[in-house]
Design a binder for these strands. Structure first.
Lengths: 161, 161
DNA sequence: TATTGTTATACTCTATAACTATA
DNA sequence: TATAGTTATAGAGTATAACAATA
């Protein structure tokens, strides 16, 4: 296994701590995802679709598919699936891009817009369960830390709630 | 709950903060997972299989399938798939439980044991990328916070590294 | 030639239910 | 009857490649 085990200052991320951080991070995300799915399935939405709608709600203009994929941090193929599902449910609409006929713009329908409040409520309830045990200071710390991990441009991409 | 701290609405988790925490947590996990897959695929392992092997490496006795599933925080069906894959690769072995003929025990093969070092190295490299930008204090904070989110019994389930 | 979004394909993880064999 | 693990089935996410239309 790792040779340098008890090395206090040799590496910036000690092997044991790094492994536990990774394990706990993926485990936390699994807990969050499980709660999100439970809260969203009564609305007929997947987690990805809810992220999509939330992004569209905060967007100034109807974004293109590629822009959507980038801001959702998924490959373009995954964005197609999300939009397909939301469109079938009547929540979003595909529009031709007047400036580039290869591109497709996506916007909320009024039906999709009406669902936003319930989506936000479901997310709030899930977040309350997951993050509720933390102190306000810990939540602030976690926010800072996750922003660093995710890098610039990832936070406040979806600001409204 | 809602001791109104500074929040206008008097909720313990302000909606905007909660939403951003959720978004950033799932995004961080996606980054971590992507790195893990990239680091593990040269070894012919999935992320789940690597978690399985790591758990077995730290286990005192060969655990049963149900115990495996519980400690990996997956449904029993998922544990079957993970063990299937690792067994086909010759890394783990299924044994009959002498005490209960319904049960199946899982243990590392010597081949699986030989792979542990490279798994740990791959995880360390991934964790270095993901958690490296954090200060030691931030890593310690994150560890505390994630332990709270995951609840008791989730940390140090895999202690060795 | 390069880019946009799609179809096609494949694999992992997740989840539920039904089945077998034990207990 | 209940439990342990499996098979069966399905859906969601992820990723790559190939393709048509357009730039």
């Amino acid at each position: 296994m790792g040779s340098a085990h008890g090395s206090p200052a040799g590496r910036s991320t000690p092997a044991g701590e790094a492994g536990e951080l990774a394990e706990l991070l993926s485990r936390s995300a699994r807990i969050l995802n499980r709660g999100s799915v439970a809260g969203l399935s009564p609305l007929g939405l997947t987690y990805g679709q809810a992220r999509l709608l939330r992004l569209l709600a905060g967007a100034a203009r109807a974004p293109r598919m590629a822009e959507l994929a980038a801001r959702l941090d998924v490959v373009p193929r995954a964005a197609t699936t999300m939009v397909d599902g939301a469109q079938q449910a009547g929540l979003v609409r595909r529009l031709p891009d007047p400036g580039d006929r290869r591109s497709v713009l996506v916007e909320l329908t009024s039906q999709g817009r009406r669902l936003l409040g319930r989506i936000a409520e479901a997310r709030r309830a899930t977040a309350e369960t997951v993050f509720g045990p933390l102190s306000p200071a810990q939540r602030a710390d976690l926010l800072d830390i996750l922003r660093i991990i995710c890098g610039p441009g990832s936070s406040s991409a979806q600001r409204g709630d």
